[in-house]
Structure formats: C-alpha cells, structure tokens
C-alpha cells in the first residue's frame, strides 16, 4: 500500500534522477560493457582460445537449441535452486518471526552463528563436504552405521538423488542465515506503530506477521527471490568442487555455469561457451521476469 503511494508521488526533479544514477552507468560502461559485447561477439565464432577466430554465423546457436546437455544442465540448476530456495525462505521467515516476536536470549549470537557458513569460500565448502561423504569409511558413513541409521556403508556420490540433494542442502546451509538477516533488515523499516495498532485490534502474533509484516516487506521479498534466482542459476563453486567438476554422478549436478566453463577452459570451445553463456543469460532474464511479475501480481491482488 505504502510503496504504491510512494511510487506514484515520486518527486519529479528529473534531471537530478540522472545525476544520481550516473555513477552506476559510467562505471558499468567502463568495466562491464566491453566484456559483455566481446562475449556476444565470441558466441558467433569458433575459437579454441589460442588459434585464429573464425566466424560461424548462427551455427553455435543452432547447436545450443539442440544441445541436450545444455537443457539437462538448466534443469539441474533450476531443480537444485528450487530445492534450496523454498526451505531457505521458509527458514528465514520463521526465524525472523521468532526473533521479532519473542525475546530470545542470545538472539544476536544465534543470528551471527547462522551466518557463519556463508563466510567460508564456496570452493572450500565443496571440498569439506566431499571429505565428509566420500568413501565407505568416510566420516558420515562411519557415524551413520555406528548409530544404526545405515546397515552398511552407502556410496553417496554414486547416487544422483543424494548428490543433487547435498548440493541443495549446502546451498541452504550457506544462505539461510543471510536470508534471515535480509528479512529482518526489511522488517526494521516497518513502522512499529502498525504492530501496536494490530495488537490492539486483537490480532495474534502470527496473524500480525502474515497479514501485516509480510505484505509490508514485499520489496525485500522480491529482492530476495530475484537475487536468489539470479545467483542460483549461476551456481558453480559448490557442485564443481563436490565431485569431479564434470557433474558426476552421471551429470546429476552439472550446472549450466559448470558446463560453459568446461566447454571453454577444458574443451577449448570458447565460441560455444560464449553461446551457452548467452543462452543462460536469456533463461535467467525470463525466470526473473516471471518471478517478478508473479510477485507483483500478488501485490496488486492483495490490495
């Protein structure tokens, strides 16, 4: 409600608008534009990285449209994103509700601790989890057989379901603390008078949270969903370091970013890797637009 009012009444001192957004576009033009244009150029070429660059027209794009591995990698990436994003946003909403409505001893400590997993480089996290799960005598097999959850050691990394689930779990584990912090930052901006009013009206805490807080922080939730889908669709480090960087077992954790990295730096098809890049960009843009319109539609309906 509020932000709609805000948007309609934006102050029209338009030339200052350009002044404020100028720094972004200047730096963007200097540092980002050329690499983007160069990648688009490469996507129409055949190039092994060291030899001459040959134009191949739209051949790379034709190949992309028929490339099963590309589609498989997109599905993998999307699936692993969904499987981590839904639990992640639910955890964050529950945690921020708990922190907002209950006096929790050591709240700051908990929140900081939940953020810890995000501090370790993703590549190291992949390696750490590999060490925990790989092999019959690995730490996890050792523990699980000892407490009787497993009859005999399980070949974790030969199971497509497990590997894919583990990637989602790691992503959830790394990011739920971050998401919580962001949601709480959003809640901060909500005028506390509204809560008092709601409480006076006899609403329970849960009702207040769902009916009042969540709609008020919709821009924050949109931000989280969009950035999560953008980051999630570019997932690279964790699955690349968890197994052999080819997405084993049987390409179950091969993400599109890994695929294009391998096409480029391992197979030396830089032209095609650029095409995959462009394809991934289009997919991300479509998914973001869908996500954005879904959330904004709800916003309109909600009023």
């Amino acid at each position: 409600m509020r932000q709609r009012k805000g948007r309609r009444h934006t102050v029209s001192k338009s030339r200052y608008g350009y002044f404020f957004i100028a720094p972004f576009f200047i730096v963007f033009a200097i540092f980002s534009l050329y690499p983007i244009l160069y990648t688009i150029f490469l996507s129409f070429q055949s190039w092994d990285g060291l030899g001459p660059v040959n134009s191949v027209g739209v051949k790379n794009y034709e190949r992309l449209l028929k490339d099963e591995v590309f589609y498989q990698s997109l599905w993998n990436t999307f699936r692993m994103w969904m499987m981590n994003f839904i639990p992640q946003i639910l955890t964050a909403l529950v945690l921020s509700a708990v922190f907002t409505f209950h006096r929790i001893r050591g709240m700051r400590f908990f929140r900081a601790a939940f953020y810890l997993p995000n501090l370790i480089t993703a590549a190291s996290v992949g390696l750490l989890f590999n060490l925990l799960f790989d092999g019959d005598k690995s730490a996890m097999n050792h523990i699980l057989t000892k407490i009787g959850l497993l009859e005999e050691p399980f070949a974790f990394f030969n199971s497509m379901v497990f590997a894919s689930g583990l990637v989602s779990y790691i992503q959830w584990w790394m990011w739920f603390g971050y998401t919580t912090v962001i949601v709480m930052a959003g809640i901060t901006t909500v005028d506390s008078g509204i809560y008092d009013a709601a409480m006076v009206d006899g609403a329970t805490r849960t009702q207040t949270y769902v009916k009042i807080t969540l709609p008020m922080i919709r821009p924050t939730l949109i931000y989280l969903s969009i950035t999560s889908i953008i980051g999630g669709m570019q997932l690279f480090d964790v699955p690349a370091t968890l197994t052999n960087s080819l997405g084993d077992p049987r390409k179950s954790i091969l993400t599109t970013a890994m695929y294009l990295y391998n096409q480029g730096f391992r197979n030396h098809n830089y032209g095609y890797a650029s095409t995959v890049s462009a394809g991934l960009f289009v997919i991300i843009a479509i998914l973001s637009a869908l996500c954005m319109s879904a959330l904004q539609k709800k916003e309109r309906e909600g009023q």
């Binding site: 690499p35 983007i36 950035t227 599109t256 294009l260 890797a273």
Partner: peptide
C-alpha cells in the same frame, strides 16, 4: 539494465575482462 547486469555469467566474459 541494472538488474540485467547481475544476470551475466562471469565465467567466459573474463576473457573480455582481461583484454579490457
């Protein structure tokens, strides 16, 4: 454009970034 600038996979554009 601001939003789209986040959506560009960085792995291959690093070649252009080096040349730049």
């Amino acid at each position: 454009i601001v939003l789209a600038s986040m959506m560009i996979p960085s792995q291959v554009s690093i070649i252009g970034f080096y040349q730049l």
